[in-house]
């Protein structure tokens, strides 16, 4: 029995000496950088791949998710009026063959308008109520139509899906209902450069239809003033997705100067009884 001893082995052999907080900060910052860089890469490649999808395919994908509702007879007048402007713009915006825009009016007090997959544009009562004239309304519609023409919705959707799946794979989650989670039929977020491109394309369409930029360029000034008036706690969705900063307004004025678009004609007023249609 005397040969049995029980000395204490040295402490800390089976544990690491690095401070857990230091390890945490190190790992966390590297992961953040890796995720941000790969999200950017996934987004870029997703958007590019999605832009290769033919428009007809995009329409049938969007039909899988939601069929537009039938038009309420109470709003037939405003629907007809919006459709007449849209068809006028369609003729002047060089839309690719087979591309058709469907406009949907939503009678909700929300200051919002957006374009989504399959050439659907949604416009809300709250926004229509504050527009000063027909040219402003046309500019708003033309802007959203330009998104469709430039394939922004499918690119944004492709980007969303690519980022979500890519990040999930990196983090080790693998099962997901891809399309369902990407929120296909909802409002998509467009980048700053997409917004500027749509502004330019839209303004050119409006100019071809009305031969003047009056009212069209005012749209953003009007919206900007409202957003300033509402104050910084303004949370209306249109302003949060369409940042109305000085630069965007300046860019638009630059387009007017570069292409020497005239503002000789007055803006066309809204038709009589417009307020009652809403």
């Amino acid at each position: 029995m005397n040969s049995y001893h029980n000395p204490q082995p040295k402490e800390g052999i089976n544990t690491s000496h690095a401070h857990p907080l230091v390890t945490f900060i190190k790992l966390f910052s590297v992961i953040t950088v890796v995720l941000v860089v790969s999200a950017w890469l996934f987004g870029r490649s997703g958007a590019w791949l999605a832009s290769l999808i033919p428009y007809q395919q995009e329409v049938s994908i969007s039909e899988l998710y939601e069929k537009p509702e039938a038009i309420d007879p109470d709003y037939q007048a405003i629907q007809d009026y919006l459709e007449s402007i849209v068809s006028g713009l369609e003729a002047n915006m060089d839309l690719p063959e087979g591309m058709h825009i469907s406009i949907h009016y939503e009678s909700e007090k929300v200051e919002n308008a957006y374009a989504t997959l399959g050439g659907h544009i949604f416009i809300y009562r709250g926004l229509l109520e504050i527009l000063p004239n027909e040219n402003s309304l046309a500019m708003l519609l033309a802007h959203e139509m330009a998104h469709v023409k430039l394939r922004h919705p499918i690119r944004a959707a492709g980007q969303n899906i690519a980022i979500q799946t890519g990040i999930k794979y990196l983090l080790g989650y693998s099962n997901s209902d891809l399309l369902g989670q990407a929120g296909l039929y909802t409002q998509l977020h467009f980048s700053r450069s997409m917004e500027s491109a749509a502004d330019k394309e839209g303004l050119e369409g409006v100019y071809k239809l009305y031969r003047t930029v009056s009212g069209a360029t005012e749209l953003f000034d009007t919206l900007h003033k409202i957003s300033v008036k509402n104050g910084s706690d303004d949370t209306s969705p249109f302003f949060s997705t369409h940042p109305l900063d000085e630069k965007r307004i300046k860019d638009l004025k630059q387009v007017v100067d570069d292409e020497s678009l005239s503002s000789d004609f007055e803006a066309k007023g809204l038709p009589e009884g417009f307020a009652n249609w809403l």
Binding site: H5, N6, N14, L171
Partner: peptide, 16 residues
Amino acid sequence: KHLGLVQGSSVRAKHA
């Protein structure tokens, strides 16, 4: 001389 138990352990994961 018997000097009791000695042990070593290591936990590892493979990367993504």
